[in-house]
Simulated assay, not measured.
Amino acid sequence: MLKLILGNKAYSSWSMRGWLALKASELEFEELVVPLYNDTWDERREGDEFAPSSGKVPLLWHDDLVVWDSLAIIEYCADLTERGRYWPEDIAARAMARSMAAEMHSGFAALRRECPMNVRQNVPMPDLSDETIADINRILQLWAQARARFGSGGPFLFGQWSAADMMYAPVVTRFLTYSIPVPPFARQYMSDVLRHPHVAGWIETAQDEPWVIEQYEAGQGTA
């Protein structure tokens, strides 16, 4: 049995990536949303179910096997099912998709810090640091390159929905939340991502969550 432990759907970008990976697998799984930073958070993250990830989400249990970290969950789901569900078949496209996913995984700290994920908000664009603007420009550059080189087969970065889109889907929500201006090709890509049934389902469910994290509502911190 697969069990995915998540943080709040309104705020947890890494949880969203892990959840999208499980949805792409089409395998049945149980999901458990654990509210981040509420009164029981510190106690709960010290329990046995969180021990392998040192209290971080998302966390995937498969019977007695455990996988943590969104990118590792993507790879595990690819191993369980078909790698074609996650990575392009063409070797050059696959190499670029993996590079983009890895860069998202390890980079863009300024964007995450200044524009925390909040799929329930839409606010005017805040004053952004040069570092965050550089992050935005880099992401748009990557999107443009992927679409131009490998996007002819569909509306997503490499044509068909892939792990690269799963990794950048929370960025799409951030650009929308903070009214980040983007060129027409990126606006169309964002629209297609937001219409994807898995992304739309995540956002819809997040609207009904009762929890509020004030620091993310104020646009501070990372998620």
Rank of each mutant, 00 (worst) to 15 (best):
Met1Ala: 08
Leu2Cys: 09
Lys3Gln: 05
Leu4Asn: 00
Leu4Gly: 04
Asn8His: 10
Lys9Cys: 05
Lys9His: 08
Ser12Asp: 06
Ser13Met: 04
Met16Leu: 10
Met16Phe: 07
Gly18Asp: 00
Leu20Glu: 03
Ala24Thr: 04
Glu26Gly: 13
Glu28Asn: 06
Leu32Thr: 09
Val33Asn: 05
Leu36Met: 02
Leu36Ala: 03
Asp39Val: 09
Asp39Ile: 04
Trp41Gln: 07
Gly47Leu: 06
Glu49Pro: 06
Ala51Ser: 08
Ser54Trp: 06
Gly55Glu: 03
Lys56Ser: 07
Pro58Ser: 09
Asp64Lys: 09
Val67Glu: 04
Ser70Phe: 07
Tyr76Gln: 04
Cys77Lys: 00
Cys77Glu: 00
Ala78Gly: 15
Leu80Pro: 06
Arg83Ile: 11
Asp90Met: 13
Ala92Glu: 15
Arg94Pro: 07
Ala95His: 06
Ala95Gly: 09
Met96Gln: 13
Met96His: 11
Arg98His: 14
Ser99Pro: 01
Ala101Gln: 01
Glu103Phe: 14
Met104Ile: 12
His105Pro: 12
Gly107Val: 08
Ala109Cys: 15
Ala110Phe: 08
Arg112Glu: 01
Arg113Ala: 15
Arg113Glu: 15
Pro116Met: 01
Asn118Lys: 04
Gln121Val: 06
Gln121Cys: 08
Val123Ser: 07
Pro124Val: 02
Asp127Tyr: 14
Leu128Asn: 11
Asp130Arg: 10
Glu131His: 12
Ala134Cys: 08
Ala134Tyr: 03
Asp135Ser: 03
Ile136Ser: 11
Arg138Val: 14
Gln141Arg: 14
Gln141Ile: 10
Leu142Val: 13
Leu142Tyr: 14
Ala144Phe: 06
Gln145Arg: 15
Arg147Tyr: 01
Ala148Asp: 13
Ala148Arg: 13
Gly153Ile: 10
Gly154Met: 13
Pro155Thr: 07
Phe158Glu: 01
Gly159Asp: 08
Gln160Ser: 15
Ala164Cys: 12
Met167Ser: 08
Ala169Gly: 11
Ala169Gln: 03
Arg174Met: 10
Phe175Lys: 00
Ser179Lys: 07
Pro183Gly: 13
Pro183Arg: 05
Pro183Ser: 09
Pro184Leu: 06
Tyr189Val: 10
Asp192Phe: 12
Val193Pro: 03
Leu194Phe: 01
Leu194Val: 05
Arg195Ser: 12
Arg195Trp: 01
Gly201Val: 01
Trp202Pro: 02
Trp202Phe: 09
Trp202Gly: 02
Ile203His: 02
Ala206Ser: 03
Ala206Thr: 00
Gln207Pro: 05
Trp211Phe: 14
Val212Asn: 09
Gln220Met: 14
Thr222Ser: 13
